[in-house]
Design a protein around this nucleic acid. Structure first.
Length: 423
DNA sequence: TCTGGGGTCCTAGGACCC
DNA sequence: TCTGGGGTCCTAGGACCC
C-alpha cells in the first residue's frame, strides 16, 4: 500500500503559517516577476481564481475581495518543505519525495491492514502540529489510486484529511466519481481526446482495452490504465541525478536589450547551473544559452536566440562554463534589435564528477582548476555564497526581477525571524 | 504596461553501420 | 516489371508532472 501526502495549497499555506490573520482570508501566491497565480487558498479558489491566471488581469478582482497577495518566496517554501519531509521520514523507512509539496510513503510492514486510517490520521496530525501546514493523505494499493484517494480526501471534510481506497468496492465507486481529466498521468491533450470519444470518468477509461489505450496514449497511458485497476507499475525511483539542469528567468518591464546586461544575467544563470551540478556531484559537457522576446507582443516579430556548444571535457567550473556561455551569447547576439524578455542556461550531457573523461591535448590546467575550485568553495562556505564571483556576474544588486509582495525569510534568516510580542 | 520555472519519458524519423 | 535486411544512435517534438 502507498500513502500519498500532499500539502494543501502549499505556498499559500506557508504564508499563512507566519500570519494567522490570513486564516479565513483568500490568499494567492504569484510566480516570479509577480506574473501569474501559482497557488491559491480555498477561499481564493472559491472566488473563481484559476491556476496560471495573469496577475494584471485579475488585480481588480483581488483588491475588491481583499485577497492577500504574495510574491513567491522559494527560500521559505523550500525550508518548510524540508521540515514536512523530515517529519514524514520518521514514519517510514521508505519515503519518496515526489515534489516540493508531495511525498509517497510505502506502508507495507509499517502498520497492519486494519490500521491504515489511524496511521494516516497520526501522520496528518503530526505534520500539521509540527509545521502548521495542513496536509491530506491518500492511501491505496497503487500510486495513481493513492492520488485518487487524495483527490477525494481534499474535497470531503468528513475524511478529516485521510482517504482510504482499500477495497474493490471503494475503488470502483471512486473511479465512477472521478472526472477523467483529474487522473494523474492524463493531461490536457489526452483528456480532451478522451472526452471527444465519449469517456467522462476514470471508470470509462479503465473500461477500454489495453490495445486501445496503447494506440492512443502509448505505454505511459497503459501504465496509468493498469494502476487505476490496482496493478502497481510506477517505480519508486529515488530521485536519480538530473540529466539536464536549467536556470532561466523572465525579466521585468520591457526586457533587456543591452548586451552587457544580458551577459550579467546569463552569467548568473550559468553560475547557478554550476552550483546545481556540484550539489549532485556531477559535471556537464553540453551547454545551451537561450533568450527570447515577449510571446505576447504583437507589435514586433518574436525572436529566439539559441546557441549551444559541447565542451571537450566535462566540468562544473563557474569560470569555464560562464566563459562558454559568454561566447555563445556573443555568437547569437544581434546589436540593438531585440528586447529579451526571458533568458536561461541549460546544461546537459551530465555525468558523475568522479568519472570525467579527459583528453590528451587539454587546454585547461585541470589540477590548478581543482585547487582553485576547492579554495573558492571554502571561502564561500565560510563567508557566504555571494562573496566570490566572476566580474561579469556583477555585484548582484541588479536582479531584473519584480517581487513587490515578498514576505520574509522567517526560517532561514536571523534578521527576519518572526517577532512575538508579549502584551 | 503586465503573461513562471524546472523537470521526465516516449516515439518517429533520419542518419548511419554492415 | 523487378531495387534487401537488420540493426544502432541521435534528435526534435509532444506529452506529462509539480
Amino acid at each position: 500500500m502507498y500513502g500519498l501526502i500532499d500539502c494543501n495549497n502549499f505556498f499559500a499555506s506557508c504564508e499563512r503559517v507566519f500570519d494567522p490573520s490570513l486564516c479565513g482570508r483568500p490568499v494567492v501566491v504569484l510566480s516570479n516577476n509577480d506574473g501569474c497565480i501559482i497557488a491559491r487558498s480555498n477561499e481564493a479558489k472559491a472566488l473563481g481564481l484559476k491556476m496560471g491566471m495573469p496577475y494584471f488581469q485579475v488585480r481588480d478582482l483581488l483588491e475588491r475581495n481583499r485577497v492577500a497577495v504574495f510574491s513567491s518566496n522559494y527560500t521559505l517554501y523550500g525550508d518548510m518543505s524540508r521540515r514536512v519531509m523530515q517529519l514524514l521520514s520518521e514514519f517510514t523507512p521508505d519515503l519518496h519525495i515526489y515534489s516540493i509539496d508531495e511525498a509517497f510513503l510505502t506502508l507495507d510492514g509499517v502498520c497492519s491492514a486494519e490500521g491504515y486510517a489511524e496511521y494516516g490520521h497520526q501522520v496528518v496530525r503530526t505534520v500539521s502540529r509540527g509545521t502548521g501546514i495542513p496536509v491530506t493523505m491518500g492511501i491505496a494499493p497503487t500510486k495513481t489510486l493513492a492520488k485518487v484517494a487524495g483527490y477525494f480526501g481534499k474535497r470531503y471534510a468528513g475524511y478529516r484529511g485521510v482517504c482510504l481506497i482499500d477495497t474493490e468496492e471503494k475503488r470502483i465507486r471512486a473511479l465512477h466519481q472521478l472526472p477523467v481529466d483529474e487522473v494523474w498521468g492524463i493531461g490536457r491533450r489526452h483528456a480532451a481526446r478522451l472526452k471527444e470519444l465519449g469517456l467522462r470518468t476514470a471508470w470509462d477509461f479503465t473500461g477500454k482495452s489495453e490495445a486501445w489505450v496503447q494506440r492512443l496514449m502509448t505505454v505511459t497511458g497503459v501504465r496509468t490504465w493498469k494502476e487505476l485497476q490496482g496493478y502497481s507499475c510506477i517505480e519508486d525511483d529515488d530521485a536519480p541525478q538530473k540529466r539536464t539542469i536549467c536556470t532561466s528567468r523572465s525579466f521585468a518591464g520591457a526586457g533587456i536589450s543591452e548586451r552587457p546586461l544580458l551577459e550579467e544575467a546569463v552569467a548568473n544563470f550559468a553560475a547557478t547551473c554550476c552550483r546545481k551540478l556540484r550539489e549532485q556531484h556531477t559535471c556537464c559537457r553540453g551547454v545551451t544559452v537561450f533568450a527570447w522576446t515577449s510571446r505576447f507582443r504583437t507589435d514586433c516579430e518574436p525572436h529566439f536566440l539559441q546557441e549551444q556548444a559541447q565542451l571537450p571535457v566535462a566540468t562544473n567550473d563557474d569560470a569555464e562554463i560562464i566563459s562558454c556561455c559568454m561566447n555563445l551569447l556573443r555568437r547569437g547576439w544581434t546589436e540593438g534589435r531585440y528586447a529579451y524578455k526571458k533568458a536561461g542556461v541549460l546544461v546537459w550531457d551530465i555525468a558523475s564528477d568522479e568519472a570525467v573523461q579527459t583528453v590528451l591535448f587539454d587546454s585547461v590546467d585541470r589540477k590548478r582548476q581543482t585547487i582553485l575550485a576547492k579554495t573558492v568553495e571554502q571561502i564561500r562556505q565560510k563567508n557566504g555564497a555571494h562573496v566570490l564571483r566572476l566580474a561579469v556576474q556583477g555585484d548582484s544588486s541588479r536582479t531584473f526581477i519584480n517581487r513587490e509582495h515578498l514576505s520574509h525569510q522567517f526560517t532561514t534568516n536571523l534578521a527576519e525571524v518572526i517577532r512575538v510580542k508579549a502584551r
